[in-house]
Each structure stands twice: as structure tokens, then as C-alpha cells.
């Protein structure tokens, strides 16, 4: 595990310890002070915040965690007053893991016309298809980052797939992919887009582009590769039309298997669906690692098993893809 993650979890643990102390104090206060407890709780929460900030100057999230914890304590205090609190039927949903699917989409001028039109339609159709993949285990969220001259998120934070509505994209400008990598790296953090208090699966990162970056992407990609979420994440890339550079995309995903190329309109739609659905399925679930083995598994053996599986499944699906709809994406614009 990375230092970044360890730091975050350390902060979370210390915040939990504080929350526990607050809870105990609150419980005794509730007994003696009755309604005064609420304001006392607020005071305690504020005190906890100050403490947390002082102890963990570097981690702004410790404060955030403590606040969230204090809120939970307040909620629990409310629950205690409720007679139905011991109702064995009043369950909430099981605690879920979360998965964020990042779509990185090229909206440079070369995408104008059929490409962006088709992409928009496919994405609209795709959202309902991946809605059920999380089942009872995982909350699947979607974040869309577009890059043309400007790098822009479709929404200011990842949106739960059940509530997600696709906003049609328009294409214009140059291909600032490096800039997009920097923005992605900044947001793929426990302090930003990956702030679920519960467990997360490593994100899915799906890049779609029809050309070569206009900016110097190499340095930005090197930076991105240092991000642990990226390292553990499931990466896939789709090159659209003949201009897209597969080598560059391979650099991004780290393996040949997870890069595919769509040359025609029909292929584009099929490939986007295959990659998105397959990666969402693999990313949102734990893997049965031991299917094919008859010996004690080691950590080394299971590392990046999901990325390997994604590569395999994408390649399998590609061999089954028909070539029926072979109007080249680069003609007829």
C-alpha cells in the first residue's frame, strides 16, 4: 500500500478513536443533561476538530473525518431516543464498497461530427446497462473528464450510476491530453473524488481518443503513474479512427491487451460497450483468484489479476466482433 493511503487510514483511525471518546462523553451527558446534550455535542465536535487539526496538520481530511464521525455520534444519540432502534427489521443497505469509473474523452476538433455524435449516443445507452453491475456489494459511480483545448469534468464530483444523466458533449479545439492526465491525478485522491468513508475498489480508467496529444503528455503521464489509485486501477483505452496512436495508448494502460482500435462506426459503439461493461463488472467485484490453482496462493500471484483478466476478456470479445458495419470512421465527414 502507498504512503498516501496509509496516511489517510491512520488519520481515519485516530479520528475514529476520537469519535469513540466523544461518544462516551456524549452518552454520559445525555443522561444528565437531556436536551442540553445536543449543544454539548457540537462543542465536543468543534473541540475534536481543533484537536484533530492540531495533531494532523498535514491531513485536512482528519478534520473532515472527525466532523463526519461527530455527526454519526449525533445521529446515534438521536437513535437512542427512538424506541424502534432495536427493531431487527429496520436495516439499512449493507455497507457497500465503492467503484468510480473514470471516462477520459477526447473532445478535440477532430472528433466533430459522427464520432462525437455516435459516442454521445452510445454513452447514453451505456449508463442503464452498467447500472446493475454493482449488485449488493458495490456503489458504482461515474466521472467524465473531457479534454479539448480545455479540460473539463462533466460534473463536479463522481455521480452514482443510478442517478447519472449523460450530458451530450461537443467537440472543439486541440488535444490537451497531458493536461487531462494532470487533472485526473489531482482528483484521484482520498481528499478529492475517492473520498468514500468505506472501502473502495481500485478505479476503472477508460481513455477514448482519436488523435495524438497536442501537449507534452509524457511528463504528465509519468506523474499520473506515481498515483497509487492509478497503479492499482483498471486501465483500458480505445483508439478511434486511424490517427489514434496505439503505442501511446499502451503507455497509458500498461498493457497491449487493454488497448483496442475502432475503425468504423459500428465498431465504435460495440467496443465502448464491451470495454465499459467488462471493466465495470471486473472492477466492481472481488475476484475468485483461486479458480485455476491447486496450491496456496501468494500475494505475488494475485497482483494485478484484475488487469490481466480485463485484457483477456477484452481480447476475447474482440475476436467475436463482427465486421459487418465497415464504414470507415475517417471517411464521409
Amino acid at each position: 500500500m502507498s504512503n498516501e493511503m496509509k496516511g489517510a487510514s491512520g488519520a481515519a483511525t485516530s479520528a475514529q478513536a476520537k469519535a469513540k471518546a466523544i461518544e462516551e462523553a456524549a452518552a454520559s451527558l445525555m443522561k444528565s443533561a437531556g436536551t442540553g446534550a445536543a449543544s454539548a455535542l457540537e462543542g465536543l465536535a468543534a473541540a475534536a476538530d481543533q484537536q484533530a487539526a492540531a495533531v494532523k496538520k498535514t491531513a485536512g481530511e482528519a478534520v473532515k473525518e472527525a466532523k463526519a464521525a461527530a455527526k454519526n455520534v449525533a445521529d446515534t444519540a438521536d437513535d437512542l431516543l427512538d424506541f424502534d432502534d432495536d427493531d431487527p427489521l429496520s436495516a439499512t443497505s449493507v455497507s457497500k464498497k465503492s467503484l468510480v469509473i473514470f471516462f477520459l474523452i477526447d473532445t478535440s476538433r477532430s472528433m466533430v461530427g459522427k464520432k462525437i455524435g455516435e459516442l454521445n449516443t452510445v454513452m447514453e445507452e451505456l449508463i442503464p446497462e452498467i447500472r446493475r453491475v454493482g449488485e449488493a456489494d458495490t456503489d458504482v459511480k461515474v466521472a467524465v473528464l473531457t479534454f479539448g483545448t480545455q479540460v473539463r469534468w462533466m460534473y463536479t464530483e463522481p455521480i452514482l450510476i443510478e442517478d447519472f444523466e449523460w450530458t451530450r458533449l461537443r467537440a472543439d479545439g486541440v488535444t490537451n491530453m497531458g493536461e487531462a492526465f494532470r487533472e485526473l491525478s489531482a482528483r484521484m485522491s482520498r481528499n478529492s473524488f475517492l473520498n468514500s468513508p468505506s472501502l473502495s475498489f481500485a478505479p476503472v480508467i477508460f481513455l477514448m481518443t482519436d488523435g495524438y496529444p497536442s501537449d507534452d503528455y509524457k511528463e504528465a503521464l509519468e506523474e499520473l503513474k506515481q498515483n497509487s489509485w492509478y497503479k492499482f486501477g483498471l486501465k483500458a483505452a480505445l483508439g478511434i479512427g486511424s490517427e489514434a496512436n496505439d503505442e501511446m495508448l499502451e503507455e497509458f494502460t500498461g498493457s497491449k491487451d487493454t488497448v483496442v482500435h475502432a475503425y468504423s462506426g459500428g465498431q465504435l459503439a460495440q467496443m465502448i460497450k464491451i470495454i465499459a461493461v467488462t471493466s465495470a463488472q471486473i472492477g466492481s467485484k472481488s475476484m475468485t483468484l483461486s479458480d485455476d490453482v491447486n496450491h496456496e496462493l501468494s500475494e505475488e500471484e494475485v497482483r494485478a489479476a484484475k488487469q490481466k483478466l480485463l485484457g483477456q476478456q477484452i481480447q476475447d470479445s474482440m475476436t467475436n466482433l463482427g465486421d459487418a458495419d465497415a464504414i470507415s470512421l475517417d471517411t464521409g465527414w
Binding site: M1, M5, A8, S9, A12, T13, K97, R190, S198, L199, S200, F201, A202, S228, W229, F232, S286, M287, L289, E299, V302, R303, A304, A305, K306
Partner: peptide
Amino acid sequence: VRDVCLTESSE
């Protein structure tokens, strides 16, 4: 939960 990210090896 302390692992934050549930990777194959943490499973």
C-alpha cells in the same frame, strides 16, 4: 477498512 483500497492482495 484500514486498507482503503481493496486490491487483489488485500482480499
